[in-house]
Design a protein around this nucleic acid. Structure first.
Lengths: 330, 330
DNA sequence: GCGTAAAGGGAAAACGTTTTCCCGTCAAGG
DNA sequence: CCTTGACGGGAAAACGTTTTCCCTTTACGC
């Protein structure tokens, strides 16, 4: 049933039906009631494509998310999707697997205006992609990630401060050999976290020790194993996310090192399973709901106000969650 | 730039441009080349809404997923999204939080044909919702879940067999007191799993022991704590998912029960972290990629063939993954 | 009683495509 | 040389809305 059918059934013109539905213009109460009854009866609602075409707006937001199985991203994704749904927006998801090639898919989203706005949880370094993003007329917002090359708002924790405080937390326990396992090195916010670590280390006149992971528990385990193998093994490991920290604990277990007695391990994110590892994982908590709420409200403001929304980092608080995997150095 | 602009620039009619783009009808090579050049130059691509309106197809698939942070669902979601992207479909995500009320959002999806097909990862028992789903003209497919009341294909493991084999696996270790921690009791496939457990137990002339969880590690821990508190504590626990199994291990740890020496724990799903728990978690693996590939291909067949695709359970294999959390009963 | 304004509602244009008709041209076959 | 068919391409309808423009009616103030 289309609007024409409703109009005929109610004995009015399609203009009137549209006006009743959208409240665009005053309609006499009797007529409005009559129309509403018919609409109700046929469970009519206007075709989104037709609406999109004439209105130039799709009531949908694109969510670009890396196709990783890390709990943090998944939770953030859920939270964002929930917020958007509450705000009445549809969610168009783009999962990015092999980074470089597939990004074109979401660029398509914004070139042809399939969405009213986009939330990126995925960091790009490809210059061609960046160039496209810069000239996008669709409002863009970054969640968790940060890309200084882009003149758009980004929402997330202060990664530098978080990295620094986390390291200082371990220093406060008397640790002198503190290693950092970072991610794949691509991201800006990741480098910020690393910078925080390095500054805290050098402020305490310690020597940094770095291993590369890829955010997966397997690589966390491998990196920790490399760290623990050497002669001057660290007494504390700070991992860039919880999954790698969990891998690090596993590595310690396999090498016969007790956590936290022989090795302190500190994670990042505070995923749901932190409380259930053995020992439970101390970590740096990111406020996922806060990030989601803020990101969505910033994006919607940009969409509805249609103002360009320049570059600006909106900081959401983080918090160190002390659990059982960190202890004073012996 | 719209199709009219391209047509003018190329010196042809819009019909010709459309034909070149869609290959609908033969166009002379010279003209086609000229049009293609202009299309290329302006990076033109047709407006999806306009296309959707005239074609009656949106090239999008709705993905209805419970808003839970369980690794299994997230992985399955990613896999499905990836498959759909590969097939050239957009992914419209609906996360369901409070089950009953929010379901109406995705019903909206199918009533007004915003999508060409829907994949449900979410089980419904609400009769009104079921009724709507039954009369949907949009092809529907169930992934992992199963709802016999619906005449649609469903893809997933044989939950009954999996539950039975898992229990037999524990019986094979000589366990006599084997408890089962199930989920929130709502789902059909969950009841199948339970039925498999019960049948295996009674086939071995053992006594069943049941505790209710909600798939979260917290409730898994609580359920296991209740089980271990009693006088006749089980020597093995089979949990309906890995998160609850991890909670069960935690409960054992806190009560001073060694796993697997004092208690065997068996999970379900084989999430990524199974290998990294302490001890590593034995579990029943579901083939996520297999489910995703099958679900998408079945759905696309239904969309493109536009055949009703009646009720049918497509079974994807499962496999018991022996790790360190299960051991012979003492 | 007349002029004017406001209110209610209809006709039609517009959004950007795809596709159905239709028309002209050219080649081939009788 | 004429007819027929194929082929290439254009005009216009159709998809389902929203919104502008316009007309009619009513009320109100003088």
């Amino acid at each position: 049933m289309d609007i024409r059918g409703i109009a005929k059934e109610a004995g009015v013109s399609i203009s009137t039906v549209s006006r009743v539905l959208n409240g665009t213009k005053r309609v006499s109460p009797e007529v409005a009631e009559r129309v509403r009854a018919v609409v109700e009866r046929y469970e009519y609602s206007p075709d989104p494509s037709a609406r999109a075409m004439v209105l130039g707006t799709t009531e949908a937001v694109g969510l670009v998310v890396p196709a990783v199985s890390f709990s943090f991203f998944n939770s953030l994704f859920s939270a964002l999707a929930g917020e958007l749904a509450t705000a009445g927006y549809q969610v168009l998801t783009c999962t990015i697997r092999q980074s470089e090639e597939e990004e074109l898919r979401y660029l398509e989203l914004l070139r042809r205006k399939r969405v009213d706005g986009i939330i990126l949880m995925h960091e790009t370094s490809d210059e061609a992609v960046l160039e496209r993003l810069r000239h996008s007329e669709v409002p863009l917002v970054l969640a968790t990630v940060d890309t200084p090359e882009l003149e758009v708002p980004s929402i997330g924790v202060d990664d530098y401060a978080a990295g620094r405080e986390a390291t200082e937390y371990l220093i406060g326990f008397g640790h002198r050999r503190i290693a950092f396992i970072d991610g794949n090195g691509g991201g800006y916010s990741e480098r910020q976290r690393l910078a925080g670590y390095l500054d805290a280390i050098s402020a305490a006149a310690l020597a940094p020790r770095l291993e590369r992971g890829d955010y997966s528990p397997g690589q966390g385990q491998a990196a920790a194993a490399r760290l623990l193998a050497g002669g001057e093994a660290p007494t504390a490991i700070f991992a860039a996310n919880d999954e790698m920290a969990i891998g690090a604990i596993k590595a310690a277990e396999e090498l016969g090192v007790e956590v936290p007695a022989g090795l302190s391990v500190l994670g990042f994110d505070d995923i749901g399973l932190c409380r259930y590892t053995r020992p439970s994982l101390s970590t740096v908590r990111q406020d996922i709901d806060g990030i989601a709420k803020t990101a969505v409200s910033v994006l919607l403001a940009a969409i509805e106000g249609s103002r360009p929304a320049g570059r600006e980092r909106i900081v959401v608080p983080h918090r160190i969650m002390p659990r059982a995997s960190c202890a004073p150095a012996r």
